[in-house]
Design a binder for these strands. Structure first.
Length: 205
DNA sequence: CGGCCGATCCACT
DNA sequence: GTGGATCGGCCGA
């Protein structure tokens, strides 16, 4: 008999879940659980902020100018992880959406820690409170130990996203963060869970 | 709370 | 050579 953990065992999301336009997958990912690592390194968090990047026609997407070595993972099958390095020090994690060859992706921007808080703290020394651990895409990747090793990884032992059966959270939609003018910065493709402490107040919408 | 700035690497032009 | 799907510290209000 399994002992109580306070966290319902997450069921892995089916590949079909991701085989859609990123703008449709993104809001459905809110409230889902992402897990990384095994054993002592295991960590799980509830996704509360995401952005949709809609492939070759989206000027804000890394795939806008076609396939390159860096964005190759975006062209993989739905559910593939796309990890990139920015500003000389941060990694950001995306889940690839749509059929293979259509480079849609959902950027994971913030999450609430559910288990493995100790490992996350060792990876995020500067985080003051628990809800700061995975606030922001660079911090989320750092807390979960996501780096270039996981670029292109399929869901499995090293990482996975699942549903815990909770009711769908209330969602708010805003424009995307950090894009230069003219790069689709006016599109409402950012989705946040209303009231989550892991979404900063000024950016709650 | 909001704005500004430096840090630090690398993919692409 | 340039600038980025960022972060955290520091400043002034």
């Amino acid at each position: 008999m399994a002992h109580r953990t306070g966290v319902r065992a997450p069921s892995r999301l089916a590949a079909a879940f991701f085989d859609r336009d990123a703008a449709l997958v993104a809001p459905d990912l809110l409230g889902a659980l992402i897990s990384t690592g095994t054993g002592e390194q295991r960590a799980t968090a509830r996704i509360v902020e995401v952005e949709a990047y809609r492939g070759a026609d989206d000027p804000g997407s890394h795939a806008f100018r076609g396939r390159t070595p860096r964005n190759a993972a975006m062209f993989g099958p739905p559910g593939t992880l796309y990890v990139y390095f920015v500003y000389g020090m941060h990694f950001c994690a995306n889940v690839v959406c749509g059929p293979a060859g259509t480079p849609h992706a959902v950027l994971l921007r913030a999450a609430e820690p559910r288990s493995g808080v100790d490992v996350m703290r060792t990876r995020r020394r500067s985080a003051r409170r628990d809800h700061d651990l995975l606030r922001g895409p660079g911090n989320l990747a750092a807390a979960l130990g996501i780096d270039r090793d996981l670029d292109g990884a399929r869901p499995g032992r090293r990482w996975s996203i699942g549903d815990d059966g909770s009711p769908a959270p209330e969602v708010r939609v805003t424009t995307r963060i950090g894009l230069a003018a003219g790069r689709g910065d006016d599109l409402e493709l950012r989705f946040v869970v209303v009231g989550s402490p892991a979404v900063s107040r000024s950016r709650a919408g």
